[in-house]
Design a protein around this nucleic acid. Structure first.
Length: 141
DNA sequence: GCCAACGTTGGC
DNA sequence: GCCAACGTTGGC
């Protein structure tokens, strides 16, 4: 299983809105960047991702699960753009902020730190475990 | 609201 | 195919 990070501006698509979609989930539309799209194409059902609030909040607020493989983004006629569906799995008991992540030497290689503009990013298993631990989740889960 | 970093576009 | 110009993103 692979791990990812999805970024969204809460004013556009917030964690609260995501949770309201429940187990049905929601397509992660609007991505117009090849790298981010390629990351979504590589996703498999059951992969987990952090849900990160950009611009406001600047923190990992929850965990989502990929529940549909990459398919056409229905918000555009352009065939180039695809997206997966994700559903909310759980809240972070304690949101992990950008500041916390930058302050942790174990996370200095995170894409979030080094390429903050990429909206869908891969996360290593080690990074996943560390961020979960910081957020008050049992890393074994 | 500013601006650095990055991606894309388009003229040559 | 290069690269300058432009637009967008997102942390601060």
């Amino acid at each position: 299983m692979a791990y990812w990070l999805f970024k969204s501006e809460p004013s556009t698509w917030s964690w609260e809105m995501q949770k309201k979609k429940g187990d049905a989930g929601q397509q992660w539309d609007g991505v117009r960047n090849y790298q981010a799209r390629n990351n979504m194409r590589a996703m498999k059902i059951g992969d987990l991702g952090f849900f990160y609030h950009s611009n406001e909040g600047l923190e990992v607020v929850g965990i989502v699960e990929v529940c549909a493989l990459a398919h056409r983004d229905t918000t555009t006629d352009d065939e180039r753009w695809e997206c997966v569906d994700v559903r909310a799995v759980r809240d972070m008991p304690k949101p992990v902020t950008m500041k916390d992540i930058k302050a942790n030497p174990k996370l200095k290689e995170m894409v979030l730190v080094n390429n903050s503009r990429l909206s869908v990013q891969p996360v290593t298993k080690e990074e996943w475990i560390e961020v979960c631990r910081m957020g008050g989740l049992d890393p074994a889960q």
